[in-house]
């Protein structure tokens, strides 16, 4: 088909767009991986997705570009942020790697993978003629219907079964999410915010938000620094004006690799962790 159709030249404007937005997308991706704060990661990802949305529009897919911006950056990423807020993400993640050699191996394999796939794609597609989509959806000078009509025609004819199955998938996902996130309550047992807050402050040892994953907090004293997953004190948890000192701490949990986060001091198993959940569960609701 590429032989029949005349190749479309890629204009300078598109090249400029690519070379401007490509680095931005790359920077967003790298920023997402390296940001210590999960909220920052989400925002970097939004950045990348917006850039990709522009690429879709440039590549004669205006509908997909709009959907990318509305659905991905608008809906999905907001969902991410909601969950982040629910989980109580106000501090940074630990950047100490607990799996030995994981980071080095991941970097080496990542570079290798990118090199292999990139080189392979480059070699295979460097002379790929661009057919363009004017013939099927009408572009700048095309005759046929627009992009949305073309996609709709395809979607409701050739891809109709897949489309219908997709609807079932969405319903299932919605029901599944409800089932997973649902908490059974006795009728009439619903507590007010006031009661919940009072219960939390009266009974819980931990009224405030828990530290990020991988940090042990095994003492109530402000002078005891939090512990990173490798056991070293976390500098971020040093209290200002108080010298870090050794205080009575709960015995360490049995797990060396990661522990159970905040629950590590109170019990080794999920039951112990469950016990803490009951005390502070109110903030989840």
């Amino acid at each position: 088909m590429t032989d029949v159709l005349a190749a479309v030249e890629i204009g300078t404007g598109e090249a400029v767009t690519f070379w401007v937005l490509g680095p931005i997308a790359l920077a967003g991706a790298l920023g997402m991986v390296f940001a210590r704060n999960a909220v920052h990661s989400a925002l970097f990802l939004v950045n990348t997705m917006l850039a990709l949305g522009v690429f879709y529009v440039v590549q004669e897919a205006p509908f997909l570009g709009a959907v990318q911006i509305i659905v991905y950056t608008g809906a999905i990423m907001i969902l991410f942020l909601f969950v982040l807020m629910l989980v109580g993400r106000d501090s940074s993640d630990s950047v100490v790697e607990t799996l030995r050699g994981q980071r080095v191996a991941a970097t080496v394999l990542g570079v290798g993978f990118a090199g292999l796939v990139g080189a392979g794609i480059a070699r295979a597609t460097q002379d790929l003629p661009v057919a363009g989509l004017e013939a099927v959806q009408g572009g700048a000078g095309g005759a046929a219907d627009g992009n949305i009509e073309a996609i709709a025609r395809l979607l409701f004819t050739r891809y109709l079964p897949a489309f219908e199955v997709t609807s079932a998938l969405l319903i299932t996902a919605a029901v599944g999410a409800m089932v997973l996130a649902h908490i059974e309550r006795e009728p009439g047992s619903r507590q007010t915010q006031k009661e919940l807050s009072r219960a939390r402050f009266l009974t819980s040892e931990h009224p405030q938000t828990l530290p990020g994953p991988g940090i042990y907090a095994r003492a109530n004293s402000i002078a005891a620094p939090g512990r990173l997953p490798d056991g070293s004190p976390s500098e971020a948890s040093f209290a200002t004006g108080v010298e870090p000192q050794v205080v009575d701490e709960l015995p360490p949990g049995g797990h060396s690799g990661g522990g159970w986060g905040p629950g590590a001091g109170r019990g080794d198993g999920p039951d112990g962790a469950l016990g803490t959940t009951r005390g502070t569960g109110g903030e989840l609701r």
Binding site: V87, W260, G261, T280, L284
Partner: peptide, 11 residues
């Protein structure tokens, strides 16, 4: 997270 109080995949 509700049961484990943790969102770490290592836990």
């Amino acid at each position: 997270y509700r049961t484990r109080r943790s969102a770490s995949v290592d836990d």
